[in-house]
Design a protein around this nucleic acid. Structure first.
Lengths: 196, 196
DNA sequence: CAGCAAAACTAACGCTAATTAGTTTTTAAA
DNA sequence: TTTAAAAACTAATTAGCGTTAGTTTTGCTG
C-alpha cells in the first residue's frame, strides 16, 4: 500500500528539497555533496535515493518552483485592472516578500541555475526571458500611457530586477533595517526614478 | 638566471589567472577543474603548478585584485572636491566601466568569493564592508547637505550596488542597447530616485 | 501478532578531483 | 656549443564524489 511519507506537513521529499536549498545556498551546488545533505536531513547518503532521483533533480525542483511562482504572479498582476504604476509597485513588493519568505530557494534559483542540465537549463532560461519580456511590455505600456518617463524600458527592468535581487544582502544584515521600512524606501526609490 | 616568463605583455601567471577568471565565470569555481584550466591555457594540468601555488590561490588573486581596485577608486573619489551628486555619478560610472572592461574578474569576485579560504574570506568580506560603509557615509553626507532626499542611506547603497551589479545581464544581451545609452539611463534612473 | 512494503542501513563501484614526484624538454645566456 | 634553470611532461597518490546493490530495520495494516 502506498504510504504517505509525511512529517508534520509534507512529504519527505519536500523536506529533502528544503534542506538542499539551504545547503546549496551556503556552499553552492557543486561544492555540496550528497553526504553533506544526508547529514542535515539526519540520514545516510544512499537513503536519500529512496525519495529522490538524483542530485540534479533537487536543483531542478528548486529552480522551477521559483520560476513558476513568479510567472504565475506576473500573469495575475498583468491581467488585473490597475494603473501601470500600481502594477509595478505590486510586482516589486511581491519580489520583496518572496525574498523575505523563500530566501533559500530564490537564492539558489538565482545563483545555481547554471548547473541545470539540458533540457532543463534551456527551459529555465526561457521562463526567465519570458518574465523579463512581460516586465518590458508593462513598462513600455506605461510609457505610451504617459504614466512613466520615456526611458529605455530594458534599462528600467534591469535596474528593478537587480535591485530586488540585491535584497539578498539585506538578508545578511536584517538588524540594520526593518522589512517595512526597506520595502517602502525601495519602492519609492525605484519608482521615483521612473514615474513622470 | 631568472628568466622573465613573458608572453606579449605579462607573466605566465597573469595569463593563467585571466583564463581562470573566464573559466570560473562560465562554470563556477567548484565545477572548474585544473584540467579544464590547463586545456584552455594549452598545457597539461601539473604544469600549471610551475607558476601558481594552488587552485584557491587563483581565486584569491582574482577577488583581491577586484576588491583593491574598487577601494582605491572610492578613496580617490571621496577625497576629491566635488558635490556629493557628482561623486555618486562618478562612482556609478566607474562601476559600469569596470563591468564593461573587466567583466570576468568582477563576475567571479561577486559570485565565487564564498569559496575563499580563511583568512582570505574574512579579509575579502572586510574589504566589501568597508566599501559599503564609505558609500553610506557619502550618502549620509549628501542628505545632511540637502543635496539628497532624506531616505535611508543603507537602502540607497543597496539599490545602487545591486543595480550596477545587475549589469552582468546586460553583458549577455549587449546587442539590445549601447553602453553609452545604458550608462546614461542608469545614472539618471538611480540618481533621480535620490536627488532632491 | 503476522506480513509486507517503505525506508533505513553497509559496502562498494567507477570516476574524477587536486596535487606531488620524478623526469625530460625547452630556452637563452655564457 | 655547453650549461643550467625554467617549464613542460608522464605517472601516481590520496581523497572524495554520485550512485547502485544488497540487506536489515521500521512501522503500518489486517
Amino acid at each position: 500500500m502506498a504510504k504517505i511519507k509525511t512529517r508534520n506537513n509534507g512529504t519527505k521529499k519536500a523536506v529533502i528539497v528544503q534542506h538542499a536549498a539551504m545547503l546549496f545556498k551556503s556552499k553552492s551546488y557543486s561544492a555540496s555533496s550528497m553526504r553533506d545533505l544526508a547529514e542535515r536531513v539526519g540520514v545516510e547518503a544512499p537513503s536519500l535515493y529512496n525519495h529522490i532521483g538524483s542530485k540534479s533533480e533537487l536543483l531542478q525542483s528548486i529552480c522551477f518552483t521559483v520560476g513558476n511562482t513568479f510567472i504565475e504572479q506576473i500573469e495575475q498582476i498583468a491581467n488585473s485592472h490597475h494603473s501601470i504604476v500600481h502594477k509595478l509597485e505590486t510586482i516589486i513588493r511581491f519580489h520583496i516578500s518572496m525574498m523575505a519568505e523563500n530566501f533559500d530557494e530564490i537564492y539558489v534559483a538565482n545563483h545555481e541555475w547554471k548547473h541545470l542540465k539540458e533540457p532543463y537549463l534551456s527551459d529555465f532560461l526561457n521562463i526567465r526571458r519570458n518574465y523579463e519580456k512581460r516586465l518590458v511590455q508593462l513598462i513600455t505600456a506605461g510609457i505610451e500611457n504617459k504614466e512613466l518617463q520615456p526611458i529605455n524600458p530594458y534599462v528600467a527592468v534591469l535596474t528593478i530586477l537587480s535591485a530586488v535581487r540585491g535584497l539578498e544582502f539585506w538578508q545578511r544584515n536584517k538588524k540594520n533595517i526593518s522589512r517595512q521600512e526597506l520595502e517602502n524606501d525601495m519602492v519609492n526609490l525605484l519608482l521615483h526614478g521612473i514615474i513622470k
